[in-house]
Amino acid sequence: MLAVDLAGDGVKAKNGSMVAYDGRIGFKKLTGGGDGLRGMVTRRLTGEQMEVMEVKGHGTCWFADRATEINLVDLRGETLYVEADNLLCTDSGLRTGTTFTGLRGASQGNGLFTTTVEGIGRAAILSDGQAVVLRVSPRYPLQVDPGAYVAHTGKLKQTLQSGVNFRTVLGEGSGEAFQIRFEGEGLVYVQPSERNTVGGNV
């Protein structure tokens, strides 16, 4: 559960994630993910839909979603890449948008696009179980199961790596046929659980 203290300022949060509040707080649905008209059109086109509300006022507001774990990410000008489903709440000063992820998204079953959060402030992301934050540096590239990937920050190049061979076709696959390989400099958030993915059963 996430508690946000508001003093006249506002946050953007996933629709319907408020569980309690005290003080005077108003909730306003933002159409099309709250990134303006252009963002709305992009989201419609890309299918990376995000139902967002603006929460504003004085008091404390508590957010939660399906008893999943909440992780806070401090952003100082970097970009956070996160799936729309995993984004709970952002400071209103942060800009959200969509970006193309390529094949990786397709293997996750989350579509070809992902959500970006940019600016200075704090964002809350959701994970099934407490997330593990892993640092990627040029010396230590990281491989992640697509189903366990939640979010990443920093300058990272991601490539889809596959271990598919004739045994996979024979039904003797390893269950780890696809991994996302992260190279560069940044942090990757991994959840201790796997979503059902197309690649996960191979």
Binding site: L134, Q143, V190, S193
Partner: peptide
Amino acid sequence: GKMIAYYGRISFDG
């Protein structure tokens, strides 16, 4: 399907 991430060179075989 229980591996979530790894560093280094690891191969997985059925």
